[in-house]
Design a protein around this nucleic acid. Structure first.
Lengths: 120, 120
DNA sequence: ATAACAGTTGAACATTTATTCAACTGTTTT
DNA sequence: AAAACAGTTGAATAAATGTTCAACTGTTAT
């Protein structure tokens, strides 16, 4: 069943040439989903705080919680997301688990955003 | 009222030196909120699709809706977010409103993310 | 003036997601 | 072996967010 007139432009009225050109030249849909997923990870202030802290030095969960003034549980949940996306890595040392940045591309993207925001 | 023992590390056990160093050297909290807000805009596949399409060429709302196979309303809502954050700009031409990329820093960040994802 | 179309907007709805809470694992110390 | 601590995890709750729907504005054509 077709979409209603009110919700979709008529074939004739749409700039068909533009639509076709864009469809041919824009990035693959799958890649664009991945881009969104990647940025989603940075789109939370708890996680940007964790990343900023880890830019300074390696830290255990307890120290991150102390720096952010949050519970270990909340921090751990966010660290799991950062670990799963390969943005941070962890190593155990006795009872403690130390986290550090894993991906340098990520630092570059992060730094570029900071630079952009500071310029305003 | 203090947080419960179970939820916050004891002062003595936390690595106080690390915590102080990180607190002194990490980015300002306000900046980190802004970073998160900026990335949040890229953290949605509808918006990454719109940005990828506008990288190819300027487009009216109707064409974007056609390319993404979405309603004009849904696209317009997302365009508003991109406009408010100064990532895209618009110009009216008759009945149509054309959108294009506004900020080149943004294109750089976007390109860096694409590059990162393509390398894997 | 009226109809038709492009686009916008607010409210409702559905989905996602961050934090809390409680229970759990693993390591060290006594 | 038991207690103590660091960290993890799943379920529940609360908050944020994307899409739909319907009504609206603004422009052009009849």
């Amino acid at each position: 069943m077709d979409k209603e007139k009110n919700e979709m432009c008529e074939e004739e009225i749409v700039h068909s040439a533009s639509v076709e050109k864009v469809r041919a030249e824009m990035d693959e849909e799958e890649l664009l989903y991945d881009v969104a997923e990647l940025f989603k990870v940075f789109g939370d202030s708890t996680r940007t705080k964790i990343l900023s802290a880890l830019t300074v030095m390696e830290l255990c969960v307890c120290d991150i919680a102390e720096v952010l003034n949050m519970t270990k549980s909340a921090v751990s949940h966010q660290l799991r997301i950062l670990r799963q996306t390969k943005i941070v890595k962890s190593r155990r040392s006795g009872k403690e688990v130390f986290y550090s940045l894993d991906d340098e591309h990520i630092s570059d993207i992060y730094a570029l955003a900071i630079e952009h925001l500071k310029e305003e």
